[in-house]
C-alpha cells in the first residue's frame, strides 16, 4: 500500500445553479467530515466552470453536487464534460437533491455516479463514496 491510498478522501461539496437551498449541502458536508473526509465546501451558486476549476486545484477524489433547481440534466453533464476535457475523469461525480428516478438513470448512463434523493441515510452516502473512491484510486495507481 502506498501513502496515497491512506490519505483521507478529499471531496468538493457545492451547490450548483441558482437555487439557494444549502441546508442539505451543509448537513452532508458536516456528515462527511465526521466520517473522516476532508471536505472542501464552496457554497452557493456555483457554475460548472467554477466547480471544476476548484476540484482540479484541490485535487479531489470526488465532487458532491446538491441541486434542487431542476437543472440537473444540464448541470451534471456539463460538469462531467469539463472534467473529461481536463483529463480528470477519474474524479467521482455524485450528488443529490430532487431528481426523478428516470433522470438519475439517464445521468448514470452518461457516467455520473449514484445520486441520492431526500431521506437517504447519510451512512449510505459515506459507504458509497468510500467504496467508489477506493476503486478509482486503485485504477489510478495501477
Amino acid at each position: 500500500m502506498n501513502a496515497l491510498d491512506q490519505r483521507p478522501i478529499r471531496i468538493l461539496v457545492a451547490k450548483a445553479g441558482l437555487d439557494g437551498h444549502d441546508r442539505g449541502a451543509k448537513v452532508v458536508a458536516a456528515a462527511l467530515r465526521d466520517a473522516g473526509f476532508e471536505v472542501i465546501y464552496t457554497g452557493l451558486r456555483q457554475t460548472p466552470e467554477m466547480i471544476v476549476a476548484a476540484a482540479l486545484q484541490e485535487d479531489v477524489d470526488a465532487i458532491g453536487l446538491s441541486l434542487h433547481s431542476g437543472a440537473h440534466m444540464t448541470l451534471f453533464p456539463r460538469v462531467l464534460d469539463l472534467l473529461k476535457a481536463a483529463g480528470a475523469d477519474q474524479v467521482l461525480l455524485t450528488g443529490g437533491g430532487i431528481i426523478p428516478d428516470a433522470d438519475m438513470a439517464k445521468l448514470g448512463e452518461m457516467g455520473v455516479g449514484r445520486l441520492f434523493g431526500p431521506g437517504t441515510p447519510l451512512s449510505d452516502l459515506v459507504a458509497y463514496i468510500r467504496t467508489e473512491v477506493a476503486a478509482r484510486r486503485e485504477v489510478g495507481s495501477a
Partner: peptide
C-alpha cells in the same frame, strides 16, 4: 477524533474562482 476536516475558506474567495 475522526481526521476529517471542513475546509470552507474558498467560499470567501469565489471572486477568483475562474
Amino acid at each position: 477524533f475522526t481526521g476529517g476536516a471542513l475546509l470552507g475558506d474558498r467560499i470567501r474567495m469565489l471572486a477568483h474562482a475562474d
